[in-house]
Design a protein around this nucleic acid. Structure first.
Lengths: 106, 106
DNA sequence: CAATCATTTGGCGATTTGGTAAAATGCCTA
DNA sequence: TAGGCATTTTACCAAATCGCCAAATGATTG
């Protein structure tokens, strides 16, 4: 694998890695509807606010979400709505595997 | 978030996590063309064979690839070819971010 | 059966991740 | 400007991940 290919795979992996956590998937799904501030998300998730803030900063540094400070609150929204396809892709695999399990158990 | 939703997000995250590594993305891309045995992949990747084997077992336990032993070799192929969409999804984000960086530097 | 090749498994050190608490920062209002 | 709210950052710990080596396993061949 040459340097250019390697860089490409690393760039992709960075995005995918940012999505590789249940809480972050939830956040992205939640932001699909509309923007939310950190405390709204924290309420929905039920973890420490600093934990949620960290998850958001991971999503932000991957370029998946963007933030906007309005007054004391920081609102987050999807920067790349195409990221929602990740859930569909993942669901396809989940479904395929589940179907096969069912088949095996017959 | 209720238990059912949580389980769904965890299942998705498991698949996505399995894809969240440059080497595993490379393997999946390589298997898109045709099945390969472990030593072929090892040659292409240039890591220790045990490392490659471990990456393959992660992909396998996520249901992304399947293996078949033929003689002394084990051949791996995509179980869910739809997994290739992950690269497209990731590339979309990479492209969007890159475009924006360019815009900012003008 | 012994030697060899392909692969997997177990174990080790180094690094990264995920979560919380506490401190720091920034904004708003009295 | 003092106090309070929203958020981020820092420090710290436990757990997970990554990569290699060495040993174990399985199949093939002489």
């Amino acid at each position: 694998m040459n340097a250019k290919s390697l860089a490409r795979f690393e760039a992709r992996a960075k995005i995918i890695k940012a999505m590789a956590h249940p809480t972050r998937l939830f956040i992205v799904t939640e932001l699909a509807g509309r923007e939310r501030c950190v405390c709204e998300l924290t309420g929905l998730i039920g973890a420490d606010i600093s934990t949620v803030s960290k998850h958001l900063s991971i999503l932000k540094s991957a370029g998946i979400v963007e933030d906007e400070k309005r007054g004391a609150q920081v609102y987050y929204r999807l920067h790349c709505p195409c990221i929602l396809q990740f859930c569909c892709c993942a669901d396809e695999v989940v479904k395929t595997v589940a179907k096969e399990q069912l088949e095996l158990s017959k």
